[in-house]
Amino acid sequence: MATLGMLLTLGPFQFENWDTAASIAEAALDKGHEVRMFLYLDGVYNPIKHQTFPDLSVMPKDRFAALVEKGATIIACGVCVNARGLEKGKDYIDGVKVGGLPDFAEIIGEADALITL
């Protein structure tokens, strides 16, 4: 089993990168790999608690919640979170941590493969 590091820098509702990232993470977890994802820049918007959008049958936050449930580690960049007026704890779904670039450096250290989206 290997560790997949992921860097996601774009938010939901405008670019498809979040969907690609969630789908790849799901496939990796299903194969028994570990997934460690760092959310950077607008990437921090993906797992926020309150999302509604009639054109999507499944909200991005619920896809990320499913990843957490399957054992993925998801950490959001704190500077990016604060820049966007979001609050640690309050605005995030359960299991998503708010951290910083040192966490990303740790993911780099642990990753057998890294993909950036």
């Binding site: 496939a27 493969a113 890294l114 993909i115």
Partner: peptide
């Protein structure tokens, strides 16, 4: 290919990201 094969390829290679 599908996502499963994509994951296999990612671990069988070094990924050079341009996404």
């Amino acid at each position: 290919i599908d996502y499963g094969k994509l994951v296999d390829l990612i671990f069988a290679h070094k990924v050079i990201n341009f996404a």
